[in-house]
Design a protein around this nucleic acid. Structure first.
Lengths: 189, 189
DNA sequence: GTCTATATGTCGATAGAC
DNA sequence: GTCTATCGACATATAGAC
């Protein structure tokens, strides 16, 4: 039973609307209507529409950055690290599938500092991912397919989980993790 | 050396802008500027902003529908059919990567008839894909992982090719096809 | 914390001259 | 085929009452 501040309620409602129509197509009147209040009232809790977007995206991006740092700096094998990355994406998706829509599709509407900050985090995330695969290939753990293709195909699937998982009614998180690891990794190992 | 009508030029320019910012965030003034004319002049060639979007999306969706129909009704094995689907996505991506951004991210801004038509085509496409995998599993060609996960992970990768391929400077289309088939299918076969 | 009223700007689209 | 001028609707955001 989580107690949300009014701002958190707004951000949650906005995440759902942004997922359905995208940031630009959602108006403050749409959002207010979803909250059962008038648009002007939103501004007692948030400073701007832009602040809602950056709250959603930056928080999620930092979550991925923190998670990847832990995984990348561990002494695990490359395969174990890839399994941990899959775990990370599934965990975040279970917790905030709606917000991930904005992270994936509306990041370009961030402004100035937040946009740069986001792009830096995304780049470093992909670099860490690539480095894990490269090392795995070097040490013979992973088949030497084109590294970029392995990184791309794995990441594109993990990034799209937010669209797919909510539609799967009866699938246990642990079974999902297990099957996901099988499908994504058994091809390259 | 392809000769484009003025409408085709507008649709091409719009595809690029829609890919960068999404349909809702691109204004007719943005589009006109990219064409080197004034916004009002666009309306001598197109009826509305909405018409541009539906031209982009419906054409691509019909291409996928036609391609999938040929693949699904052939006498090929399940594996051969999956390889043909990968081919189809790569071919379309090479020809119109920009338009695929709208297909993937802006379809919900289609109106009425076109929205229903699109959703019907997408549903049938996914059903055909699922049926091919199901039959492959039944006949022992494909490992019996969760069918939904196989369909989802494969399709999410193929649908994201439009983002990734243009960034790969020196990759031959045939090599891409070969590696893509390896990475996507060797895990499930 | 929510409201009404409104400021200020931009949107898609049209009319009519050249 | 492109332009200038403009319309009416709607966008984000603010001011100030309750």
């Amino acid at each position: 039973m989580k107690i949300e501040t009014r701002k958190q309620e707004i951000v949650s409602a906005a995440s759902i609307l942004f997922k359905e129509k995208g940031y630009s197509a959602v108006t403050m009147r749409d959002l207010a209507k979803a909250m059962g209040i008038k648009a002007a009232s939103l501004y007692n809790h948030i400073q701007s529409k832009q602040e809602i977007l950056s709250t959603i995206i930056i928080e999620l991006a930092e979550e991925f950055t923190t998670g990847m740092d832990k995984i990348a700096t561990s002494r695990d094998s490359a395969i174990q690290k890839l399994e941990n990355i899959i775990d990370l994406h599934i965990d975040v998706t279970l917790r905030n599938a709606d917000g991930l829509a904005s992270l994936n599709n509306d990041w370009m509407h961030l402004e100035e500092d937040n946009l740069q900050y986001f792009e830096k985090m995304r780049e470093e995330y992909e670099d860490s991912f690539r480095e894990i695969v490269r090392k795995g290939v070097d040490e013979g753990e992973i088949k030497s397919f084109n590294i970029e293709i392995i990184v791309f195909s794995t990441l594109s699937t993990l990034r799209t989980l937010y669209l797919w998982y909510p539609k799967q009614k009866n699938i246990d998180a642990n079974i999902l993790k297990h099957d996901m690891i099988s499908v994504l990794l058994k091809g390259v190992v």
